[in-house]
Amino acid sequence: MLRLPCPQCGERGVVEFRYGEIPTIPEDLTDPAARDLDRAFMRTNTEGMVTERWFHEAGCRRWMTVLRDTRTDQVLEVVSRSSARQSDRSA
């Protein structure tokens, strides 16, 4: 099972968490309507490293930002709070 390292609670099973996607829209897409359409429906669906949010619903009830490899489900990094905020903004 996918295990996630919660900064507050330690490593816990994925069933305790809720998934939060950080949508990415291609930068070369400039038309606002096309960007809206892409944000609503299109997915990058990365095979490899993704930055994503997880909410520890059955634990400390806090969000964290995680770097995960979708090919292996290995979690490589839990991004610290300040850099997590930055990645939220850039997304």
């Binding site: 099972m1 994925v14 069933v15 809720r18 669906n45 994503e52 090919r71 489900d73």
Partner: peptide
């Protein structure tokens, strides 16, 4: 389906139990 996107083809004991 499991809620998070993944290509890992990994099964889980937790799924079996629930």
């Amino acid at each position: 389906i499991d809620r998070q996107p993944s290509y890992s083809y990994r099964s889980s004991f937790d799924f079996l139990a629930s």
